[in-house]
Computed example of a mutant assay.
Amino acid sequence: MSDAMTLREITDFAENLARKAGELVRREREDNTLRTDYKHQTELVTHADVMADEFITGAIRKRFPAHRILSEETMPDLSQAEELDTPLWIIDPIDGTVNYAYGHPQVAVSIAYAEKGQVQAGVVHAPFSDETYRATKGEGATLNDKPIQHSGATEPRQSLFATGFPYTKDKLEPLINRLNAMIHQCRDLRRIGSAALDICWVACGRLDI
């Protein structure tokens, strides 16, 4: 455990960072100051991604200088993450960057804390809907401090499922084939545009798969 902090205190710290970063990215978009660019020639990125990343990683380094960070800007070798002696923070400053750039509300700041390759705490904050999902190992998960649970759906035909698509389009055919098979076996399909929110929506019952 870090500096004798409990996992709940770690989660509180992560939530505070996620909320502040969320306010930053919300303000940048509402002020119409967005600047966009591309990573690897295909992946959209905005200056707000970089600003939020620097804010979050800077705060973590100040509070926990010995910890490792996996983020948009800092990517350590994680081939043996479970053997790391120091805790690891996993950050996506804006999950749903394309949504963000186009003015859609499905955007999230995602922060997780792991020890020896196992996630112990996590926070996902959606700044445009003011929803905060958080979970601490052994304590369940909440949405805006209220407990959440999965829908309990077990039959695909009664299930609403979500999917996403990669930035690179050269290997889409296998995915399209799987979607074609799935769409005939489920209630319906949603494409949210934020993987973090997909997972949270499954956790709270807005999606089944």
Rank of each mutant, 00 (worst) to 15 (best):
residue 144 N to A: 13
residue 92 D to E: 01
residue 176 I to F: 14
residue 123 V to R: 04
residue 144 N to R: 14
residue 116 K to T: 03
residue 54 E to I: 02
residue 77 D to C: 13
residue 205 G to C: 03
residue 42 T to I: 10
residue 73 E to Y: 00
residue 44 L to H: 08
residue 6 T to Y: 02
residue 105 P to M: 10
residue 43 E to S: 11
residue 112 A to G: 07
residue 61 R to Y: 02
residue 118 Q to S: 08
residue 8 R to D: 11
residue 93 P to T: 06
residue 23 E to L: 00
residue 186 C to T: 10
residue 30 E to I: 15
residue 132 T to E: 04
residue 53 D to M: 01
residue 57 T to V: 15
residue 24 L to A: 04
residue 180 N to K: 10
residue 98 V to W: 02
residue 19 R to V: 11
residue 44 L to M: 09
residue 137 K to Y: 14
residue 105 P to F: 08
residue 58 G to V: 07
residue 61 R to L: 05
residue 174 P to Q: 13
residue 61 R to S: 05
residue 180 N to A: 10
residue 15 E to Q: 05
residue 29 R to E: 13
residue 54 E to N: 01
residue 46 T to R: 05
residue 203 A to F: 04
residue 138 G to D: 13
residue 72 E to R: 05
residue 51 M to Y: 01
residue 78 L to G: 09
residue 156 P to S: 02
residue 69 I to D: 08
residue 69 I to A: 11
residue 138 G to T: 12
residue 197 L to K: 09
residue 10 I to F: 03
residue 86 T to F: 04
residue 158 Q to V: 06
residue 30 E to P: 11
residue 200 C to I: 04
residue 87 P to A: 15
residue 82 E to K: 00
residue 143 L to P: 02
residue 142 T to A: 07
residue 75 M to S: 12
residue 60 I to H: 07
residue 195 A to Q: 15
residue 85 D to P: 09
residue 128 F to R: 04
residue 85 D to S: 14
residue 128 F to H: 12
residue 58 G to T: 08
residue 11 T to L: 03
residue 86 T to V: 10
residue 95 D to L: 01
residue 82 E to C: 00
residue 66 A to D: 13
residue 59 A to G: 02
residue 178 R to C: 12
residue 17 L to R: 02
residue 43 E to V: 11
residue 54 E to C: 00
residue 128 F to G: 10
residue 53 D to N: 01
residue 39 K to R: 15
residue 182 M to I: 12
residue 154 T to S: 11
residue 94 I to M: 07
residue 106 Q to I: 15
residue 33 T to S: 14
residue 164 G to Q: 12
residue 169 K to W: 13
residue 42 T to G: 10
residue 142 T to R: 04
residue 18 A to L: 07
residue 178 R to Y: 06
residue 157 R to A: 12
residue 140 G to L: 06
residue 82 E to M: 02
residue 91 I to K: 06
residue 202 V to A: 09
residue 113 Y to R: 10
residue 188 D to A: 15
